[in-house]
Design a protein around this nucleic acid. Structure first.
Lengths: 251, 251
DNA sequence: CGCGATTTTGATCAATGTCAAAGGTGGTGG
DNA sequence: CCACCACCTTTGACATTGATCAAAATCGCG
């Protein structure tokens, strides 16, 4: 939803306008505050697919907003089992934690080429004191992320494989379409392997494969070569067990 | 850990000092700001066990800090399956969400008699503008809660029943002991049924029962009549798959 | 003492994991 | 342009975990 008809004061960043101004941590700012926020920002950076740009157990000293591309957060158990905690799309805010000097508790890996906006942890407290809006905004974003994490937990804890797969794919479908004005067809680009999907849902990739085949045979969706086509959103939503409201559209 | 040797300026609330001053949302405040915070607070309230004080789908208009007692957050699927999202102990902060007028996305139920501190959602934005510390504090608490939710997700998604049960009980064991100066023995009060445990871990209560029996037979713990005794914390931690660091002790 | 809720146990079943191997696919260097 | 390679997908046979159903034992409490 575009905010009131005001012309948004885009800040040129390295020569181009910020693409996530309206959905990221900076959304509530304008005018002078936006300029100040610009001084808070430490850098802009790019990562290649497969790159771990946050590593569980290491201290990071910075946090991020995703400007472009996909990433995911994950946790690794000692024996190699992996749980994907969240998929991060443009606008996502990650790496912030209460104890700013402590090691981070999860890893983050790029799925595609991506660019991020980097903020230094050290100055966040000072900056929030000067610009209270930012603290509130961070709390709000964190609350929304908590909601997503809770939904994710319900899926994994209390739904069947079929429901989980349908639910995840449909959620990503909506999240992607919401912020890419181009694609409003039934097809989106989704840079995940079946193993990613399994690791997000607490399933093996083999079982994800079988489940996808089933959904394909029922003409609900196609997932092939990084491209997801949702053939019957309504029926798929039913399978996923979504209630009528689609509150998560807010991302 | 007590903050520097300063005498903490306890606010008398309805005649008694706040028990969660150091761990709740109010921790960073003192002096005049603390007085202001007091004016932000709307009420103090008590709930009996079993009482749903937040209901999924309804608008609440307020959020809470737990002063005393236990509660849990949960989500209900249409067919009655329940996922417990989090157990709330004194100091927990719940009910805050980005869109302050939207319906809440989860329910909250008291497990014991409990008392909560109530804040009005409507005034939070104004209040944060006046007291930026609060925004930062809320963001920090939210970040910590996200960490707990992520751990929970990893447990449910990628661990066996045995590991999940060990992990949850050990975590609660530490969380309880951390804030109740009295109990430093190997026994804590834990007001959960096996069904609660199952609903938190994505298991049936029957299977929780069998798993508990196994752990009991291995002399790792006892859970009986609302009382948990941890007989061998080290071996239990091994079963739970905890890495050496016990970062969650921060709650 | 009796009742509802909870725990415990057994027998059986279904969902999902494991292991293994055969296709696909895209990218890279010769 | 082809061949090869790494990685991903697909499928089959079988194993295992945890679910389901059902009933008995126990507990807390009025």
């Amino acid at each position: 939803m575009p905010r009131r008809g005001t012309k948004k004061p885009y800040i040129p960043i390295d020569g181009q306008a910020c693409q996530v101004r309206d959905i990221g941590i900076c959304a509530p700012f304008s005018g002078e505050a936006l300029g100040a926020l610009e001084t808070f920002k430490a850098a802009e950076r790019m990562y290649a697919p497969g790159r771990d740009f946050l590593v569980q157990g290491e201290s990071a000293g910075e946090f991020f907003t995703v400007l472009d591309g996909w990433a995911f957060l994950y946790e690794l158990l000692e024996d190699g089992r992996r749980q994907i905690l969240d998929f991060c799309l443009p606008g996502a805010f990650l790496g912030f934690q209460p104890d700013l000097s402590a090691p981070v508790t999860y890893s983050a890996q790029a799925l595609t080429d991506m660019s991020v906006c980097v903020f230094p942890r050290s100055r966040v407290a000072d900056f929030v004191r000067q610009h209270p809006e930012l603290g509130l905004r961070m709390a709000c974003v964190a609350a929304r992320d908590q909601y997503l994490a809770f939904r994710h937990l319900s899926n994994v804890g209390r739904r069947t494989a079929r429901e989980r797969v349908a639910s995840l794919l449909l959620e990503l479908f909506f999240r992607v379409r919401l912020h890419s004005p181009a694609s409003s067809g039934d097809k989106i680009v989704i840079p995940l392997t079946q193993e990613h999907i399994g690791d997000a849902l607490g399933l093996t990739s083999v079982h994800v494969n079988r489940t996808l085949r089933q959904l394909r045979e029922e003409k609900l969706l196609t997932l092939k070569g990084g491209s997801l086509q949702v053939l019957d959103p309504d029926r798929l939503a039913e399978v996923a067990g979504f209630e009528s409201d689609v509150a998560f559209l807010r991302h």
